[in-house]
Amino acid sequence: MELRNFGAVIKFALEVEAMAAAFYETANAITKNQQLKSSFETFMQMRMTRMELLKRLRRENTTEMILEPISGLNSEKFRPKTECPEGCPDKKLIELAVSMENLNSAFYIVAAKKIEFLIEPADIFEQMAEENLEYTKQLEKFG
């Protein structure tokens, strides 16, 4: 689906964060590795914090002067696959997480460009993209 408004972009970002939080919650329940469990728990909390941040961005940055249509941003390209079946091995969980983080990062990089007329949200999207890559590095250490 094409994201045509700032509100639609934020709505999708909230979906992405909610999916990630749900993924880490499930992964946390599946893994037996205590260190990995702890990381998943941290990542889940981070995603919840980011959801609050996104809601604040939407509340504080929508002004009528800049309500211009956005084009060329399709959400389906950035919708991650986050299903982790029960008993999924740690290696697979990490693979899924890394793939999701990379895709999330790509979304925030592209979306930041599309909303560059909104300085604070664009900057925070870029920051989130960097955070996603940082999470990837942390996850890869478990591999």
């Binding site: 509100g7 002004t63 009528e64």
Partner: peptide, 12 residues
């Protein structure tokens, strides 16, 4: 009006 416009209105 669309929800983003309403948000813009309340922001002002």
């Amino acid at each position: 009006k669309i929800i983003d416009e309403s948000r813009g209105e309340y922001r002002r």
